[in-house]
Nucleic acid binder design. Structure first.
Lengths: 161, 161
DNA sequence: TTGAGTGTGTTATATTGTAACAGTCACAGA
DNA sequence: TCTGTGACTGTTACAATATAACACACTCAA
């Protein structure tokens, strides 16, 4: 059902099941509930590597949860963000699955304006430089949003052909 | 009228006039029009170092431009962003004056959750590391949003006292 | 058995942003 | 002098994004 969009050869179903498996595992470990609604929202977000809008999720989940309202979605999103299972893409008002929810969480988002896909990179060196810069300013960091817009490698090579 | 908010000792009126002066100069140079509405919006944004919301600007400009509507504001904001005179703070849906509109434009925003002020830093090394990271991924950068949330030096030292 | 915590349902509304078309004005070229 | 074109603004309507507030259900422990 879910189609591969991240790379021609990539088995997206595997991405999804890995992400859901990790999520289930982490929630169990942490003693928090990955309820059916939350699970469905997470699965819908993972249906591609594109960032998904809250109201699109609402439309998508309606067949499964007929009572779904904006609050239904936003509550699930809040939970998933809190648990580090998804990221909010600030510059798009949209949400994307986190590929490293089980690891240290300093990511940078590469957002392709052609294919809409979002690639997450941990970029330890970027984060270190950022931390230094903040420290110089006497600034105590709580959270970071590093979002880069442009054209991804795949799309760039397509354009050239 | 405009009150100093950026630092106890800082003369904010000077900030404002410098920013407006630079803006007028740049627009003249570029042959674009800093119309009264655009000028007023820019001045209102510069009334503090906090990020300002579009609808707050609308309320603020109503006494000056009674016909002002959302479109009035958003058009002015689009222009000011295009000219690099202000930044959009993606993670706040708000806007802040740019302190280096006449220079190379790769900035990082430090957003204080206590005093709401936004400090802009050019952070050449951060941007360079970011560029390297993107290049590794074969990604062609169009624009960047680097927004750091936390507590600024001033507020941090206040909390300690 | 009751009360606290957690999750969801439901209604209403707040906030943020855009589309589309009309009117005005200045200025260049016929 | 006309006239048409481009840039800016006025105006109406609406789309898209997000939250508040209160009610209900269920679980689990005291």
């Amino acid at each position: 059902m879910t189609t591969a969009t991240f790379a021609p050869e990539h088995d997206h179903q595997q991405c999804v099941s890995k992400a859901l498996g990790t999520a289930e595992h982490l929630c169990l470990l942490r003693g928090v509930q990955l309820t059916p609604i939350r699970h469905q929202v997470l699965e819908l977000i993972w249906s591609s590597h594109k960032a998904v809008k809250a109201y699109d999720l609402l439309d998508l989940i309606k067949p499964l949860q007929q009572a779904a309202k904006p609050a239904t979605i936003y509550r699930a999103l809040d939970f998933l963000i809190e648990q580090g299972l998804i990221h909010r893409v600030e510059s798009l008002n949209a949400f994307v699955g986190c590929r490293c929810s089980d690891q240290q969480h300093e990511q940078l988002l590469l957002i392709c304006s052609q294919c809409q896909e979002v690639e997450e990179r941990s970029a330890a060196d970027v984060m270190k430089t950022l931390a230094q810069e903040a420290e110089q300013a006497g600034f105590v960091i709580h959270s970071k949003a590093v979002e880069i817009h442009g054209v991804c490698g795949k799309c760039a090579s397509k354009v050239q052909s």
